[in-house]
Design a protein around this nucleic acid. Structure first.
Lengths: 162, 162
DNA sequence: TATTGACCTCAACTTTACTTGAGGTTCTAC
DNA sequence: GTAGAACCTCAAGTAAAGTTGAGGTCAATA
């Protein structure tokens, strides 16, 4: 309260001029709830500093981070993994295109994998769901077999079921 | 398993002869925990009848149902939806191939959709994640735009962000 | 200066899909 | 006829990803 601001809205003007954003601004611009931003911060996905009044301030970088978080999430990647990926980004400086590219490479693998999986599933769904083989050991739908199953626990049926 | 022993126990022999299964048998054969089967039943995805001693008995049909549940789940369909789909199956009789086909048709749509979505995402990931456009209104990654967005809440950015 | 909206923390609640455990009953085998 | 495996119910716990609310502070403005 003891500030000596001469002009109107000098403070917020300066803040914006420096590219600092409040949590509300980030929320609005990234279309994410304030509570979610708090949550991401608590999980170490984004970071902020505090004003003397204990309010969060974010640099513009956070917008990209949040955008990445949302994109990654929409591909089905859990926050914990996103956090790990984001952790590979440089700490002090703003990430370069190269930094981001490295990050996205791993996810692309992941996406490719999932796309292959879903495609296979789709192609087999029609054939298997109605054919009667689904409950049998031979059904390709329940034995993704061609790749080392990463979902753990392969098929282990030794007798036919139905 | 051990060989087919003739006269182990009359009761269980008869039961098996009639194709009735205990929850433990279903669990083992479908590779799903007993607790999960209880859970599915509580949610109306599968059903059973009880013995005089209050134990559950299942018909073989349940194996296929459980298989379907697992397949559908692996595509990302929530149990509630799976329940609805399964509810369209005939109540009294064992479902025919046609019944199953009808059921899978809807899911195929869903899968197609999701595959298209993921593919688009993958194709754009590389380009956008590192290019700087990601935090801007123009980024195709954050504006799936070409289809009516079903995730709700379209983009509403009127200024560039970064 | 006073108000009001934005912000703060922390705890509790929500949903989905189950699992775990306690306490008790039933089946099956020897 | 009894041990022990398998089953039963119901309550509580777990994990992810947040949301909601209470109680209190900060900041922009009339």
């Amino acid at each position: 309260m003891s500030g000596t601001n001469k002009k109107k809205t000098v403070a917020s003007f300066d803040r914006k001029g420096r590219g600092e954003m409040t949590v509300g601004e980030v929320a609005e611009r990234s279309d994410v709830a304030v509570s979610a931003l708090h949550f991401y911060e608590s999980k170490g996905l984004i970071s902020s500093w505090r004003t003397s009044g204990n309010q969060r301030r974010y640099s513009r970088d956070v917008l990209r981070r949040v955008a990445i978080i949302k994109v990654a999430q929409s591909t089905g990647i859990p926050l914990a993994e996103i956090r790990q990926a984001l952790a590979t980004l440089p700490d002090g400086r703003t990430p370069t295109a190269k930094d981001w590219a490295k990050l996205s490479a791993g996810w692309r693998e992941d996406l490719d994998q999932r796309i292959r999986q879903l495609t296979q599933l789709r192609d087999r769904l029609e054939g298997c769901i109605g054919c009667g083989c689904l409950s049998m050991q031979s059904c390709p739908l329940r034995n993704p077999g061609d790749r080392a199953a990463e979902q753990g626990g392969g098929a282990h049926y030794l007798e036919s079921d139905i």
